[in-house]
């Protein structure tokens, strides 16, 4: 492995100090190693001299204005941390996420649904009431749950793919992120003033 790393670093000109000295000593006595390293350096020169990924973007003005329009809309999107009462949401947030897993999977792939579409929800516990609607303004599917019971904090919740983080502002709201993409939450959970759990699938 060091062999690969040293050849790459030498080819790129990033090997320095004692490591460089040692590698050059090794090359002086090993013609195969020298040939391999020189080939790598030559390839680096050819590629860096012939590749670029920048491209002029078509309709640049429209590109920027589309983004600005979207982020202006984002300013009023409700997934920004609300300023309601401080609550420890984690236990029932986990429960909520778990019990509507099947339903939310359905909605994750339903970007073109209209508000008039009939939603089918399933909760394993019949005492939990689920309501689902599309919030067109926020561009989000919202799921409201009533009757969620607390469960222990250490309850696992898709630990390999999902992480949750408290939103700033002390609201007690939590955002759920796919592990591979922590730039934007996939789902945000808050408790409404009526005591319901509000689950917003952001798409």
């Amino acid at each position: 492995m060091d062999h690969e790393h040293h050849i790459t670093q030498w080819a790129d000109g990033t090997l320095s100090g004692e490591a460089l000295t040692n590698f050059e000593k090794a090359m002086a006595t090993d013609s195969e190693l020298r040939a391999e390293a020189e080939e790598a350096r030559e390839m680096h020169k050819i590629l860096s001299g012939n590749l670029t990924i920048e491209r002029d973007i078509p309709n640049a003005q429209s590109f920027n204005s589309g983004i600005l329009k979207a982020i202006e809309a984002e300013k009023i999107a409700p997934f920004v941390a609300p300023t309601t009462q401080k609550t420890n949401l984690l236990p029932w947030a986990i429960a909520a996420a778990a019990c509507i897993a099947a339903a939310s999977t359905l909605f994750l792939n339903s970007g073109n649904n209209s508000a008039a579409t009939t939603r089918i929800t399933y909760t394993p516990d019949p005492s939990i009431d689920a309501k689902v609607y599309i919030d067109e303004e926020a561009g989000a599917t919202v799921i409201l749950l009533d009757g969620i019971a607390s469960i222990p904090d250490d309850q696992p919740i898709a630990p390999k793919t999902l992480i949750s983080r408290a939103l700033p502002g002390g609201s007690g709201s939590r955002a759920f992120f796919a592990k591979h993409d922590q730039a934007q939450p996939s789902m945000v959970l808050t408790r409404t003033s009526g005591g319901q759990v509000r689950i917003q699938d952001v798409y």
């Binding site: 690969e4 790459t8 670093q9 390839m43 590629l47």
Partner: peptide, 16 residues
């Protein structure tokens, strides 16, 4: 970053 170096090493070999 070691994985990056290894990938570069093998990618260059294949391109070579």
């Amino acid at each position: 970053s070691g994985t990056v170096m290894s990938r570069l090493f093998h990618a260059r070999k294949k391109l070579q």
